[in-house]
Design a binder for these strands. Structure first.
Ligand SMILES: [Mn+2]
Ligand SMILES: [Mn+2]
Ligand SMILES: [Zn+2]
Ligand SMILES: [Zn+2]
Lengths: 143, 143
DNA sequence: CTGCTAATTGATAATCGTTTTCAGTTGGAC
DNA sequence: GTCCAACTGAAAACGATTATCAATTAGCAG
């Protein structure tokens, strides 16, 4: 289940962060979008309702939310990182190369592969990145 | 099998690119290193033997080699992309968070998962990214 | 070997995304 | 309401990457 705006604000408070209108606006924007958003795109969207927000505050808020695990930061796209609403369970992403839509998935099992690699390489494995890139059904129709 | 310097230069020629001393130096450096290298780090290494090379040429060469699939470009690290020698088969990477060492692996089978996701999401899946991050045996000893 | 030419190079400047700085503002505890 | 650490936005600084352009050169044709 994706985090709701309510849960995110509660979580912020729990960690002692203030709940400013700017932060609420950024949170609303990310939760409302199903897509990967760059910092610039978040700024653009937030600015519509909240024209006085600074780009710097968008960067700071994204960094904060990401650090608390409330949003997901992805890199596979191109140059700059992109963000999407998070899901508190361990999960990975299916990303549309057409429109940036993100679908979370769980239920994969990389443990056997991870064990094999640890054995063969001598690495102590701590983490993994798994993403599928494709074309969503909406974008398939736009031929 | 990782590409040798010989194979890379042959491949360049095949695509009609000139084989300049600068390109050879960049290729040698990447092939000689087992690690992920940033453009700046490649430049630093190449400069030792070839002090007149420009950083711009390093960027251009990395872009070219990456486009031809002769080196792998990774993003999972931090801010800027990193490069490592490529392997012509479909493969993924095991990356040491301590020293940047990269080990290629093959023999994974994501097809069942990929099929399930395609069915459930309606996506046409084209590609995937899979990386394991850990600590190599040498770095484990450096406690 | 010699010339030719398109490809390549490196210095410089421009650009892009991000971070730092800092003085003014404000959320929320009391 | 008062207070203060947390927060904000403007501006400047910054690091990485890309564009521009005149000079050089790899590799081919003669
Ligand atoms: Mn997610
Ligand atoms: Mn590789
Ligand atoms: Zn799409
Ligand atoms: Zn290591």
């Amino acid at each position: 289940m994706k985090l709701t705006e309510r849960k995110i604000t509660t979580e912020l408070r729990k960690h002692g962060y203030k709940l400013t209108p700017q932060r609420q606006a950024v949170i609303d924007t990310i939760v409302a979008s199903q897509d990967l958003l760059t910092p610039a795109r978040v700024y653009e969207k937030v600015s519509r309702e909240h024209p006085d927000i600074g780009l710097v505050t968008v960067y700071r808020t994204l960094e904060l939310l990401s650090r608390l695990g409330l949003i997901c930061e992805l890199h596979s796209g191109g140059t700059c990182p992109t963000y999407t609403a998070s899901n508190p369970e361990h999960h990975h992403h299916l990303i549309c190369s057409g429109c940036g839509k993100v679908v979370d998935f769980t239920g994969h099992n990389l443990a056997p592969l991870e064990n094999r690699l640890a054995r063969e390489s001598g690495f102590r494995i701590q983490n993994h990145v798994l993403e599928f890139i494709g074309v969503c059904s909406a974008c398939q129709e736009t031929k």
